[in-house]
């Protein structure tokens, strides 16, 4: 029996079982940390003046947390739609190489393209890290079912988290809500460092941390772009320098 036939004769219950295993994969320590970060995000969005429905909609449609933080930041700063879209797009370029890396792991010979396009929506740091860890233990023909369970659970779970926090955030004592708002920067300052692939990305992160507040004062409205471009190209230049020195 060749691959094509075996895939067609896979019983639906098997797919269902692997989907459920994906659901279970989402209910893990990384999934819990992500949910905590969404607690902080919900507080941020609430302060920015968004409504409950808008925040839940944004969580489902955008999904990636850095992109949402940038979008809320742009809304807070009163940016125009093109400027906001540009800033969000620039902060999400990283999604493309992540999906490029994940796609070959997900598909088998007869996976339909629309399935991959649909599943790619679930790609964000947490689900990507979990998938890259777990997929090798999943039979190839079951990987799309597994990732569908993992990704959709994370999205739906955090839509619920955001809605819940949104409703209670106004009634929390100041100490608790300050601690909640602090979760987002803490989560990203650590997980961004951990997700960096090369030394240059670590350098870009350090430059960006230093330049962000500076440009916020110097060029308000253009601060994120300016800081990102300068920090990124500076780090990239040192990456080229390091390589030349190593090569010489």
């Amino acid at each position: 029996m060749n691959d094509l036939e075996s895939a067609r004769t896979v019983p639906t219950e098997a797919r269902g079982r692997w989907f459920l295993r994906g659901v279970r994969g989402a209910l893990s320590v990384p999934g819990f940390i992500l949910a905590s970060a969404f607690v902080g995000f919900a507080g941020l969005a609430r302060d920015a003046g968004l409504t409950l429905a808008q925040v839940v909609f944004m969580t489902g449609m955008v999904w990636a947390l850095p992109a949402k933080v940038v979008l809320v930041g742009a809304i807070l700063a009163g940016s125009s739609l093109p400027a906001a879209a540009f800033a969000v797009a620039l902060s999400s370029v990283r999604l493309a190489p992540m999906v490029v890396a994940l796609t070959p792991e997900l598909r088998d010979a007869n996976t339909r393209p629309w399935v991959l396009y649909l599943l790619s929506h679930f790609v964000a740091v947490t689900s990507w890290v979990l998938a890259m860890e777990q997929l090798r233990h999943v039979p190839r023909s079951m990987r799309t079912a597994y990732y569908a369970g993992l990704g959709s659970t994370l999205v739906v779970m955090n839509m619920a988290v955001v809605a819940t926090v949104f409703l209670i955030a106004g009634r929390l004592p100041p100490l608790l809500s300050a601690a909640l708002f602090f979760l987002t920067p803490l989560y990203f300052v650590t997980s961004l460092w951990g997700s960096a692939r090369e030394r240059a990305s670590h350098l870009a992160m350090i430059f960006g941390l230093a330049l962000g507040p500076v440009f916020h004062v110097v060029t308000p409205g253009f601060d994120l772009l300016a800081a990102g471009l300068l920090a990124g190209s500076g780090a990239f230049a040192s990456h080229l320098l390091w390589r030349r020195r190593r090569g010489a």
């Binding site: 961004l192 090369e198 240059a200 990305s201 507040p213 994120l224 800081a227």
Partner: peptide, 23 residues
């Protein structure tokens, strides 16, 4: 591209710490 994206997200984080809103 990764460096620019990382620098940009880092700038967002720094601004959340230096110029926060709410509590």
């Amino acid at each position: 591209v990764r460096c620019i994206a990382t620098g940009l997200v880092a700038a967002v984080i720094a601004n959340l710490i230096v110029f926060p809103t709410g509590a």
